[in-house]
């Protein structure tokens, strides 16, 4: 198990909380809520060690299209990068809905 944290610049405020996903095999859960500063913070807990660079790339890509000041908690149980992006997009979509 490894814990990673990332910070990104943000422009929009987040109005509510969103929860998607399950900590099942090859899956993850995402908890998204307003952050207490003007930045986005991502706290990842993953069952698979040694993939910090991959997480960085996946989150860099997500934050090219997402600019909300969210505190995002990710609990990951071995999801592939594609799965992680899908869950993040799902959370972003739920936030807009």
């Amino acid at each position: 198990m490894e814990r990673l944290s990332f910070t990104y610049p943000a422009r929009q405020a987040v109005a509510r909380r969103v929860h998607v996903g399950v900590v099942g095999s090859g899956d993850l859960e995402v908890l998204l809520e307003p952050s207490n500063d003007a930045q986005a913070h991502v706290a990842v807990t993953t069952s698979v060690d040694g993939f910090g660079t991959v997480w960085q790339h996946v989150l860099d890509r997500f934050f090219t299209r997402f600019d909300a000041a969210a505190a995002i908690e990710i609990n990951d149980f071995g999801a592939t990068p594609g799965m992680v992006l899908l869950r993040l997009e799902q959370a972003a979509e739920a936030l807009r809905a």
Partner: peptide, 10 residues
Amino acid sequence: LPLQDIVTQA
């Protein structure tokens, strides 16, 4: 679970 290196669910 974290004491046993297992990821928790919220």
